[in-house]
């Protein structure tokens, strides 16, 4: 190349220096785009995740230890009172939160993993294979949650594992469908053709070029789905086909507490119930925030 071309070099894409802004402004407007509810959701969720993660260090009592001090109201000793077996409600709530997060998280991650691969492969290959697999996915989706849960619990026995499997199974169709749609939309784009011209193998095209570009809707669906999954685990446990007592679970605790509501022991179900509601609420807020954040029309701005 010659001299003229140095003149031809395009100017850098970013123009000038951006105006300086305070840390808070950059955090609030930059990351949250001024979305106050998103900020609240993330803050709440951060607290809940912290509590769940460090649960064993935070508990004041053994969550499974029964004592003669039954149905004590909240006090300095038992922050959220005790239940009908004299167990500490605070310690049980913290432990439940941890277990529910793990079960819902494992279930949703499993569903994302399996569902994405199904969607990616079906969308990319197409044809009869796609038709066949997607009809199977339709069949899974047509079973109600409770039916799948009952059948699986019957086969696998009531355990944490079976609830994880139920969560995986019930959520696979969501991800298979979302990723398949995204794959169909992206597989004919020019950069995929460019990769093919660059000698990329089919495997590399699917997993290296296509997959990273189809995953963004998962983040949004995942966080909304996690909220639903936490709720479902609690519902199943509440109904007695999920996590079984004495293992603490928010659903189990609410269920047990309802029997003592009439006796005035409100703390037994209200406290875990509020934690459950807060968890679902904060996950939903985060989902909404992510949806706005990852919207290409907004992120392009």
């Amino acid at each position: 190349m010659n001299m003229q071309d140095s003149a031809l070099l395009p100017a850098p894409a970013t123009s000038g220096a951006p105006p300086r802004r305070s840390m808070w402004n950059r955090f609030y407007f930059g990351l949250f785009g001024g979305d106050f509810l998103g900020l609240i959701g993330m803050a709440l969720l951060a607290v809940l995740v912290f509590v769940a993660a460090f649960g064993p260090l935070l508990v004041t009592h053994d969550p499974l230890l029964t004592t003669p001090d039954t149905l004590l109201p909240p006090s300095a000793e038992h922050w959220l009172g005790t239940d009908h077996f004299g167990r500490d409600v605070f310690s049980r709530t913290v432990t439940s939160l941890r277990i529910d997060f793990i079960v819902a998280g494992a279930g949703v991650s499993g569903a994302i993993l399996i569902g994405s691969i199904i969607g990616l492969v079906c969308g990319y290959i197409g044809g009869w294979f796609d038709d066949l697999v997607m009809r199977l996915v339709d069949i899974i989706q047509s079973f109600p949650l409770l039916l799948v849960a009952m059948v699986l619990v019957l086969v696998m026995g009531p355990s944490v594992e079976s609830i994880v499997v139920v969560t995986v199974l019930i959520n696979i169709p969501i991800y298979a469908r979302v990723i398949r749609g995204e794959t169909l939309r992206k597989k004919n784009l020019e950069y995929i053709d460019a990769a093919r011209c660059s000698g990329a193998s089919e495997m590399s095209i699917v997993f290296r070029h296509l997959m990273p570009n189809t995953l963004s809707p998962i983040v949004v669906h995942g966080s909304l789905n996690l909220a639903a999954a936490v709720g479902n685990v609690a519902v199943l446990s509440f109904l007695g086909i999920g996590i079984r007592p004495p293992t603490p679970d928010l659903g189990v605790m609410v269920a047990e507490g309802t029997n003592y509501l009439v006796q005035g022991a409100w703390w037994m179900s209200i406290c875990p119930g509020l934690v459950l509601a807060t968890t679902i609420f904060s996950l939903n807020l985060m989902g909404d925030w992510l949806e706005g954040r990852l919207d290409p029309r907004r992120s392009a701005a």
Partner: peptide
Amino acid sequence: LRRFRKNVQIVFQRPETSLNPRM
């Protein structure tokens, strides 16, 4: 075929989609 692609290359029209956004 894959190996021979080296010899014929293409540049596409639309700048928005001609590059992999994640690379």
